[in-house]
């Protein structure tokens, strides 16, 4: 599988925009998105999954254009953003059942693996932020799609859990999957994509908008 992003441009109506982003990702590869705070790492991840409309360039998977096809992307990507997508008034098992019903349930015993099987009857509001993150990651790794898109997946986790998640991601890569991560943790990845803010004036930046150019660094 080849994920190819060509000259991608996207942005919010508020003015923040990304442009000129090109990258390739093959099966068995992991890409780490790097850059200063506010440079657009999360925006790029959301654009790839389709949560932000792409207004320039294209995204292809195995040559098939999926640029603004949100329904197709759900079949290819597993996504975890900043927020965990958990309902605080429901128990952990009710939350997971909801998402397992929607995204598919595998046979893997992910709850035990992630050490959250003793939390299943607890309300999410009673869990710590690290536990909530592990529950959200359990949702992702229960039935992982071909490409993982993870935004700071290890925020709030202790060292043991961080190692556990790192191993799960590497296991996914070894099985032929791919991953794009926003992370400040060191991963043995051979691909890094750095986003840098640019001061080059363009028509939109002259109007007070913030523009960014992307540089591809290997």
């Amino acid at each position: 599988m080849i994920l190819k992003i060509t000259d991608l441009g996207c942005g919010y109506s508020s003015g923040f925009s990304l442009r000129g982003i090109s990258l390739n990702l093959n099966s068995g590869e992991m890409l780490i998105l790097k850059g200063k705070n506010g440079v657009g790492k999360t925006t790029l991840l959301r654009a790839i999954i389709g949560l932000i409309a792409i207004n320039a360039g294209r995204i292809t998977i195995d040559g098939v254009d999926v640029t603004n096809k949100l329904d197709v992307k759900g079949e290819i990507f597993s996504y975890l953003g900043h927020l965990n997508g958990l309902k605080s008034h429901l128990t952990v098992s009710e939350n997971l059942k909801l998402w397992f019903d929607i995204f598919g349930e595998s046979n893997s015993n992910v709850l035990e693996e992630f050490g959250i099987n003793n939390l299943i009857n607890k309300k999410v509001s009673e869990c710590s932020s690290g536990q909530k993150r592990m529950i959200a990651l359990a949702r992702v790794f229960n039935c992982p799609k071909r490409v993982l898109l993870l935004d700071e997946p290890m925020v709030g986790l202790d060292d043991t859990n961080k190692k556990k998640i790192q191993n799960k991601i590497e296991e996914h890569i070894k099985l032929g999957g791919s991953a794009i991560l926003v992370s400040h943790r060191h991963f043995p990845s051979n691909k890094t994509f750095s986003l840098k803010s640019s001061t080059i004036p363009t028509s939109s930046s002259l109007n007070g908008e913030k523009d960014l150019l992307a540089n591809f660094m290997v």
């Binding site: 389709g50 949100l70 079949e75 953003g81 900043h82 927020l83 958990l86 605080s88 929607i102």
Partner: peptide
Amino acid sequence: QDDFRDGSLDLLLISPIP
């Protein structure tokens, strides 16, 4: 709004359910 604030809306948008 609750779904928007807790991140569920993002997941619903990429889910196979229209």
